[in-house]
Design a binder for these strands. Structure first.
Lengths: 337, 337
DNA sequence: TTGACATATGTAACTAGTTTCATCAACCTC
DNA sequence: GAGGTTGATGAAACTAGTTACATATGTCAA
């Protein structure tokens, strides 16, 4: 099957060694520890590498070192700035640890998540970053079988089997509700993304439900997008009576609601107060600027990167970390007292 | 929690073979072509795999097949929905070709791009998707040396050395300007992102400059973010005279400008017309809904995925493809005639 | 002159899989 | 009962690197 002249096969170490008239060990040294090689041998080999356009095979390297130098992140979507910000920090910090990042999106579907996780592991990921603590059975099984270092983010739970690096979602939501309650709001509309397969949203809603105050909460579920927020705003405007305030469990939805209210000529905060969660940079330039609960996602990215890198190199799982959310008061909320 | 001091060496094929009392070839068959193995042997081997928690090494597989089954995408930032949309389509289509996607962000820095490209190739990427046609010397050298299949996106140029799959940026900008010109606008502010190291923005600006119309164009450079747009809006509002219209070379900036104008109580389109480029979903729900030039980024992602997958499997580079932008008229532009 | 040591390089054994080819038994046909 | 075919399995070669160990040469001191 192998004829004398093959058209184009990638050159390997042996080819280079033969071309340079040295052994494979010498070529390997040129690649990894050029200091050990005599100057003119070095040049001979480098010439051969150049003429053969030799590029070392990543797989062959990995097989020896047992390291592929990349990790995977499973996130619900890229279509929300909050994840973009998280990933930016994660990637920056990982690269300080000489690790590349492979991003896979799950569309918040646990089965997709398990599938993508499997393919990340198949292609050699050394560790995983996942969003939230709820996964399907296949995912749990996969993580247990492979024992791949995995950190849960956007979610804090001290006694989880896997380390969690994130914030207390219930507390973040309570921070927002507490602010509204203090301002005297009694009739509050809560707008949130899909509850199904999303433990962060559920935790936030639970936080609201367990917060004790003498007022009414009405929840509205929609898509996490500007469009989704605008749709809910239309619905709320068609109600016989406007709520005192609208609490959005994410800023993306909040901006959508804000635009929707504006389209219906409802003014914020004069007719309704509004508050969000996330504190995206955009929230500082909306009209009016949006009061929000700041979630430290950049910090979360950095801590997750450090934790995972440490776990991979030392085989020692990091401890869970609780990061603190804080209220940023702007002009979309006003006092009713 | 994880116990730290396990003598955890991962089981390999030979370990499984020994445990099951069969040869390595049989274990390999169980993994890849279970149909060839007798039923009770199969079960024996599967039992051994389960008890040893054996997971095949991706690297060792890759070394044989010469395939790592993933490609890399180099994009300027994740912090702009336009790229998020592109990546979503790209990833979806790549996975149909059994390819995973590794995303690397370059911050529009050519040196970062070259670095990230190198590390993608180092970890074994079989192909690359890059944004725009302008790269630093190190990048060109890398692409030439490794001959890695690489497709340029967001940019169309029929005679580029590498296949380009994208739109004509100059034409897209002209489409927007033509619309404003037809409505009788003479004094137009053009708001755009950084020109340095961004050939898409430059191409759009060149398109505007070569379009013949009897009016005035004033350009404003800012960051591509809502904040950046809002800053320019503040600046424009402080000018002695408002322009007739504001043409933004991206919708993200346009929404920022819109919010900034609104904060200064300038009404659109009564006092200024506004038009964007990208046509993000958000642009349909802004107040007023934003007239924009639709860029087919989802289609671009799909075509790029198909092209790259084809290139990798057939060794045959695809042809460049020009995708068509089209004007979406909403309510942010009005006629002055 | 010889031993001690450093430097430079080669040989061959690893890494963890896939794959080719050989072997052997069971079954079928003539 | 000889010969052919099929099915199941194993031995060993193969992928492309790294690396432990061996060897050859040169320098220097005893």
């Amino acid at each position: 099957m192998q004829k004398a002249s093959e058209p184009k096969k990638r050159a390997n170490l042996r080819d280079v060694a033969k071309a340079a008239g040295v052994s494979v060990a010498t070529v390997s040294r040129v690649l990894n520890e050029p200091g050990l090689v005599k100057k003119d041998t070095l040049e001979k080999v480098q010439a051969a590498i150049a003429t053969l356009k030799f590029v070392p095979s990543a797989a062959a390297r990995a097989i020896n070192s047992g390291r592929t130098r990349f990790v995977g992140a499973l996130i619900p979507t890229l279509d929300n700035a909050i994840f973009a910000r998280f990933l930016a920090a994660l990637e920056r910090k990982l690269s300080e640890h000489q690790l590349s990042l492979v991003v896979a999106t799950t569309d918040s579907n646990p089965d997709t998540e398990a599938e993508k996780a499997k393919s990340l592991i198949d292609i050699g990921a050394e560790g995983l970053i996942v969003t939230g603590a709820t996964h399907c059975a296949a995912m749990h099984d996969l993580l247990e079988r492979t024992m791949i270092p995995t950190i849960i983010t956007s979610f804090y739970e001290s006694d989880n089997a896997l380390p969690t690096i994130g914030y207390d979602n219930a507390a973040a939501a309570q921070l927002a509700l507490h602010h509204l309650a203090e301002l005297g709001h009694k009739d509050i509309a809560v707008v949130h993304g899909p509850v199904r397969d999303n433990d962060r949203t559920r935790a936030r809603l639970d936080g609201l439900k367990t917060y004790v105050f003498d007022g009414k909460l009405t929840t509205f579920e929609t898509q996490i997008s500007h469009q989704g927020g605008a749709n809910v705003a239309d619905h709320i405007c068609s109600l016989p009576r406007l709520p005192d305030a609208i609490l959005c469990l994410s800023d993306v939805v909040a901006l959508g609601v804000l635009l929707g209210l504006q389209a219906s000529k409802i003014s914020v905060p004069e007719q309704v107060s509004m508050i969000g969660i996330d504190d995206l940079p955009t929230s500082a330039v909306t009209v009016p600027p949006l009061t929000s609960v700041h979630l430290p996602v950049s910090q979360m990215g950095e801590r997750a990167a450090d934790g995972l890198a440490q776990w991979i190199t030392t085989q020692q799982a990091p401890h869970s970390e609780k990061l603190h959310a804080r209220l940023i008061v702007r002009n979309s909320t006003r006092s009713l007292l």
